[in-house]
Simulated assay, not measured.
Amino acid sequence: MNTHNIVCYGEVLWDLLPSGAKAGGAPMNVAYHLTQLAQAPAFVSRIGLDDRGKELLGVLKEKGVNTEFIQLDYDMPTGIVHAVADSNGDMQYDIVAPVAWDYIDVDSDLTELIGQSSHFIFGSLATRNKQSRATLFSLLEQANTKVLDINLRAPHFNRNIVEDLLEEADMLKMNISELELITGWFADFKSVEGRIALLQERFNIPTVIVTLGADGAVVNMQGKVYKHPGFKVAVADTVGSGDSFLAAFLTGLLENKEASDALIFASALGALVASKAGGCPDYTINEIYTLINNSDKVIL
């Protein structure tokens, strides 16, 4: 019997930073944070039979992320991203292609896994290659609650595929830049709430979550709007903050929290992760509640 209540699908890779290599990939980060929050996620991806792949498996196992459904590729290398600072000091990212996670295969075990789980989390980056894209859309036919963590990374997306993904989503999570980009394809809305309503109506998406960086987050669940202004912390970096936010919000809903309380919980974890270095830092659930209890920020 499948014991995984959530499945995360997509890329896993090494971010080759000036400071050294760090394990990365949004679906992997979400799976890690779900694990930290006492959920039982499965992670579906693909790595190469190379040293980087072996090291990546070791990191995932060390962090407690389930690796049962990570496929091995005999031809393609493990994914890497070259991160280089430009003349202004801003980081520019080259997501190398093709790599192993571009070639995720579908099989009966995977189909059964998706069908038995309550939530299936996916993004746009894993659709850049036709193989992983075909596998994703095949699995979406079996999925129950479909959670689209859009995660746009230029030039690895196009409008037609993004619209196809939006058509599938029961829950959509995005940042403010992604919201503005996508809604700009259809209309010139000024307000965040107007942009969210446009996506909900056009693509029939019951729940839309938009993270606003330092300004918090807003959620529309079936027409009811919830906002949180965010928790103030000393930021180490923002890597993985949005991924942890999604994991915490889903966990809140699975634990039958009210949407407003799930948003507070998610906002607190996003801030906590931003206060620590890296996308998958160590923390405890008690740290999340300590941040909540010591803050005067309340739901609006």
Rank of each mutant, 00 (worst) to 15 (best):
Ala83Val: 15
Arg202Trp: 06
Gln200Trp: 07
Lys232His: 12
Leu246Met: 13
Thr111Gly: 08
Leu166Val: 13
Thr211Gln: 02
Asp261Glu: 15
Val81Phe: 04
Ala85Val: 07
Phe231Pro: 04
Ser177Met: 06
Leu250His: 09
Leu166Tyr: 10
Tyr93Arg: 08
Ala42Thr: 14
Arg46Thr: 03
Asn256His: 13
Ala26Leu: 10
Phe249Trp: 13
Gly278Met: 05
Glu255Val: 01
Asn293Cys: 02
Gln131His: 14
Tyr74Lys: 14
Ser118Cys: 06
Leu57Cys: 09
Lys22Ile: 09
Asn160Thr: 14
Val233Asn: 04
Pro98Thr: 12
His4Asn: 15
Leu254Arg: 15
Ser124Asp: 10
Arg128Leu: 09
Ala247Phe: 04
Pro281Lys: 03
Ile285Arg: 12
Leu172Trp: 01
Asn160Leu: 12
Leu269Ala: 00
Ser124Val: 09
Leu253Trp: 00
Leu139Gly: 04
Leu125Asn: 06
Gly24Asp: 03
Asn220Asp: 11
Gly242Trp: 00
Ser260Met: 09
Glu141Phe: 07
Cys8Leu: 11
Ser241Trp: 04
Arg46Met: 13
Ala262Tyr: 13
Ile299Tyr: 07
Gly48Lys: 09
Asn160His: 08
Leu16Ile: 15
Ala23His: 04
Leu13Gln: 11
Leu212Ile: 10
Lys232Gly: 08
Phe157Gly: 08
Leu199Gln: 01
Ala247Thr: 08
Ala217Asn: 07
Glu11Leu: 08
Pro229Leu: 06
Asn158Ser: 06
Leu37Gln: 03
Leu254Asp: 09
Arg195Cys: 01
Gly123Gln: 03
Thr238Tyr: 07
Ala247His: 08
Asp237Ala: 04
Gly252Asn: 08
